[in-house]
Amino acid sequence: MAPDSRRVRGPEESQSPLLYVPCSEAVAEVPRAVFARAGLLSQASGSAYLEMGGTKVLCAVWGPRGAPGRCRLQCELRWAPFSRRGPRSSPRQAGLLLQESLEAAVRLERYPRAELAVWALVLEERGCGLPLAVSAASLALADAGIEMYDLAVGGGLSRGPGGQLQPDPLDTEEESGATVYLSLLPALNQVSGLVCSGEWEGDSAVEAIKLCMEGCQRLYPVLQQSLVKATKRKIPEPQSG
């Protein structure tokens, strides 16, 4: 890699020590617990932090800011260099996938000549980074007070080597099998984003999507509760009397 003149110089190349270690089998876990918190950053208009098992995602929303033309939703999703096991990766970007999932949920027509900027950062990736980022982004948009039709909730699923469908897969399970990432608008029961990778035969894909949708519906009340808590923190209790 050519040395970047704007960063401190390091060695030309480096390898991760994990390349020299025999692979270890991952242990399949039960559906992982989710922790959600909105409104934790002081500078951004809205923010949210979501944690599922080991995967940690932070999202900040800026806007609405003045910009010419129709309202644009500008999304950026990055993985931190230390977020993956194995070699230190150059930050991957997946802003477009995030944008597709969120555009269906946000009432863009209410913000003419404005721009909404969504910045999501995956601090640690242990599977399902993208769907969790979708949930975090919609929570952050709601925290910023942007008008939305519904929260876009993300869910993931992977098919293991034995053909069993594993919801909320770990990163090792994702690598080995075929995966489905889905983002759902639960109240409207509409799918706003879908990414399928690997081979899916016939009806197995439909079954996987249905399972994902159920997972998203289960996650929905957790996100709603975190929004209520965040609003209570921002607005003090009315004085009685």
Binding site: G10, P11, Q15, S16, P17, A80, P81, F82, P87, L123
Partner: peptide, 9 residues
């Protein structure tokens, strides 16, 4: 976050 890797000196 600190990542340790191998390199040639």
């Amino acid at each position: 976050g600190i990542k340790a890797e191998f390199a040639a000196p």
